[in-house]
Design a binder for these strands. Structure first.
Lengths: 202, 202
DNA sequence: ACCTGAACACCGTTCAAGT
DNA sequence: ACCTGAACACCGTTCAAGT
């Protein structure tokens, strides 16, 4: 298999999905490609460019339908769930998606498609952009917290959540709830809050 | 000045604030302390423990007043602004605050204090926890995006925002708005949405 | 044109040795 | 008790050399 930008970036994403973002080094990626790590510099000027290549692949996974006459609330919810699902499919790559500048072509493409949806739903341009920023921040924030704290929620098998000994009574009261895997419910709660808040916009 | 856990963690935070999170290495921190890097291992078992020490200092900066009879909307807004201000005072440390498990004592303390506020305002326990998760995710998500994309927004002096050539017309239309530093306004927009959404909770 | 090997300036971490 | 020096197994990146 010949080396190419696409194959390198795809192999890099597979490595990140498998071993985590910190495990991605030019040398290890070279090994996965059957080549010395330094060969990658023929295709990417540095590691930052390689990470941008990974982001491009990830955002391409996000299929955003063209505007239709479906109620905007439903479109808004579906797009939020689609983005959340993308993040949870690639938990180790979430930090790469937490700071996406609109100057990046792949980001601008996805943002433009969502803007088209919101504007078709009656949002004016400034509100649509701020709505996009709000929901994106929320979805990324939840996913990052959820994935980062997963080791503390995992595998308790009925044992209580390990709160510190001097924890607030309000938290102790919720220890059983904390032990369960109710991230999806928590996400839905916040999504409902945001949709209702947008419905009552002036 | 003798070495101590507190002095090491404070010096580490100062280094991160000055040079960024990636610049924090045991060797450079040692240099700032006037000592060889390896000496730090007498006080922290590894780098992860050192980062936890930094988090502890940061969360201690967050003063959360006891419950009062102020309307919960105002308390909610003030706590959100206080947390946002903390993040913007330490922009390079934001990734450390993006994944805070409640098993961490400093986190549990801050979370407990906020829970007390929300419960005094009439939220039941499960709702208070999910509300805390929602607002935290939003505040961290916005701050992280804002800081991470700051280089692309900075110092344009009237030049248009550098959108990619094939950008969506809906984005091109907003280029002037993108060039301005309206992050505060965007944050406020999302905060209003969330507060309104919480007001209409069932 | 494409890849390799050696080199440089870094990492986190361990551990025997110094004081 | 507290810090140092050397060592190990890693990093990203450059560049002359090979094919």
């Amino acid at each position: 298999m010949a080396l190419s930008r696409a194959r390198i970036a795809e192999t890099a994403l597979a490595l990140v999905d498998r071993d985590g973002l910190e495990a991605l080094s030019m040398r290890k990626l070279g090994a996965d490609l059957g080549v010395e790590g330094m060969a990658i510099y023929r295709y990417f000027p540095n590691k930052a460019a390689l990470l941008a290549g990974i982001v491009e692949i990830l955002l391409a996974e996000l299929v955003i339908p063209p505007p239709s006459d479906v109620p905007w609330q439903r479109v808004f919810r579906e797009l939020s769930h689609a983005y959340r699902a993308l993040l949870l499919r690639h938990p180790h790559a979430i930090p790469l998606l937490a700071t996406l500048p609109l100057s990046d072509p792949a980001t601008a493409r996805a943002a433009g498609a969502v803007m088209a949806q919101l504007r078709a739903a009656g949002f004016d341009a400034p509100s649509a952009l701020k709505t996009l920023a709000t929901i994106t921040s929320y979805v990324v924030g939840v996913a990052q917290w959820e994935v980062g704290t997963a080791p503390f929620r995992a595998e308790r098998n009925g044992e209580p959540f390990p709160l510190p000994p001097d924890a607030d009574p309000y938290l102790v009261e919720l220890a059983p709830q904390l032990a369960e895997d109710d991230c999806e419910e928590t996400f839905e709660f916040g999504l409902d809050v945001i949709v209702r808040g947008l419905e009552t916009r002036s």
